[in-house]
């Protein structure tokens, strides 16, 4: 656990020093929201139906940018080998990366949602529930995304390959998170079915990733 925190801390320190990834994630998420608002008109009538989809498209596309850099940054100077030489389990590296990716995702979400609220003059009936759904969805996204980010790190066209292989696998997260967000925004309190899928998805993929991560970064 200490090692995971150490890795995450190192990642975040590097990131906040250069802000390369964070800035592009934030700008990208903002652009997605703004492009949607141009596409749907200034005050769309069915905003309740559009909002969940817009939010999750922004989250996942911007998140993808961050994920694709997550292991790529370790390629510089062969740092990934340096990490693998450390006397820690390979899965600690995975957990550390999950932590730093999650923090970056949350920062991006915390900027995007207020911007969305301002641009669409939107009010959220039950913010706590919304936060809960977003956290669950983001975790599922990051668990699989971090694994596949490591998988694509040594591939020539990794920026192209990652979205193509990540989106089919995280469709359950996107579907369930969009549904749950929609229900929370329209004041329906029964989101148990979606939450159950998000929770199961996160738990299963976290455990599977811990088990197979060492095969991913073998070379």
């Amino acid at each position: 656990m200490r090692h995971c925190l150490n890795i995450a801390w190192k990642d975040l320190k590097t990131e906040f020093r250069t802000k390369q990834m964070l800035n592009s994630m934030l700008l990208f998420a903002l652009l997605v929201v703004i492009i949607f608002s141009f596409a749907f008109g200034p005050y769309p009538e069915n905003i309740d139906q559009l909002a969940p989809g817009m939010l999750w498209v922004a989250f996942t596309f911007a998140g993808m940018l961050g994920l694709s850099r997550s292991f790529a940054s370790e390629k510089e100077n062969g740092c990934l080998d340096g990490l693998k030489l450390c006397p820690v389990d390979r899965s600690d590296i995975y957990v550390g990366k999950v932590m730093s990716n999650t923090v970056l995702m949350f920062i991006m979400v915390m900027v995007t949602v207020p911007v969305f609220i301002v641009l669409f003059d939107y009010s959220i009936p039950d913010p706590l529930r919304l936060i809960f759904v977003i956290v669950l969805g983001t975790l599922g996204f990051v668990f699989v995304g971090t694994l596949l980010s490591a998988l694509t790190v040594n591939v020539r066209a990794r920026e192209l390959l990652l979205p193509v292989i990540l989106f089919p696998v995280i469709l359950p997260v996107i579907i369930s998170a969009v549904l749950a967000t929609g229900e929370v925004l329209s004041g329906i309190n029964d989101i148990w079915a979606e939450v159950r899928i998000l929770g199961t998805y996160g738990a299963i993929f976290f455990i599977v990733s811990l088990l197979i991560f060492e095969y991913v970064i073998e070379d």
Binding site: K10, L83, L85
Partner: peptide, 26 residues
Amino acid sequence: VISHETYLYDDLTACENLQFYGKMYQ
């Protein structure tokens, strides 16, 4: 291991790099 690759993080200071690895090796 000392390789032709340095295993160093370019955006951290020398001291921070060593702190990171030092903690990993306890």
